[in-house]
Amino acid sequence: MLLKAAYNQMLLIRYFEESIERLFLEGRVMGTAHTCIGQEAVSVGVATALQPQDAMTTTHRGHGHFLARGAEPAKAMAELFGKSIGYSKGRGGSQMMMAPEMGFYGSNGITGGSIPFATGIALDASIRKTDRVSACMFGDGASNQGVFHETLNMAALWKLPVLYIVENNGYAMSTSTDQGLANPCIADRAKAYNIPGVTINGNDFEEVYNCVQQYAEAARQGEGPALIECMTYRLSGHSRGDPRVYRTREEEQEAWKRDPVKTMEKQLLERKVLTAAQIEEVQQKTTAIIDKAIITCENAPPASAAEFQNSLFAE
């Protein structure tokens, strides 16, 4: 059941992201977006390992995290359509959505910007002595920001219930990790803060799920933070319009052989969780969900300018 549910979610993310790329090409959505094609197993592995009361923060590449946490596809997609039904009422766009009621605390579009934010949520959990764990998602690029180091040090000092989950997808926009990391192993940085650091296969749902569950439980027991490096690959470009001049098509073809969605389908068949016909059925259902979301977005009213003008401050 776990695998089947995970497959449903991974496919939903894959189709969501593919539809976003298509909608951009067709000129039907605005702004920018960063898709996570190839990284679905991380999103779903982490989200499946969390409890309902837990928190998750994300990055500029956050659709997958949000959908895995339970976002309604139409309300997330509506941010790209600039529609009022969006999670941020159309004000946020692709990178700025938040839904605390489902334990999702979003991103602010600044690389590394959510690292202290997630840690503050963990500080609140620590003060109120709830059993909430905060899952902080970020990329290899963000691990080079100063705030990563400042924050991990403080979280380790205070033993806060927060997991730092880095999706090492090989590229910070166009800069490869070869060019951006003096030590290619990001998990090694955990040693500097005296916390556990592990590197795992981020394209394998079960490996991510098991690892995150283990460290989430430890954090819940008061053992403090951990740094989990998920090795993956961004099969899509950085954002729309990325000509991908910084890598070869051959490299991409090799990476497609490790496609987490295909890997999952293979596992489902081998373990006889699903038949080929059942997989096809999931694909059709998922296509229908995405198609319906697009129609919902196109029919929704535009974001309200008058309401936004009066929104600057809280009461």
């Binding site: 202290p116 609140d124 403080m154």
Partner: peptide, 19 residues
């Protein structure tokens, strides 16, 4: 510690969570 960006960011997260 002497970490102004983290102090500020952590406080913002705690504020949104109810502190």
């Amino acid at each position: 510690p002497i970490s102004e960006q983290a102090i500020t960011g952590i406080a913002i997260g705690a504020a949104v969570a109810g502190q």
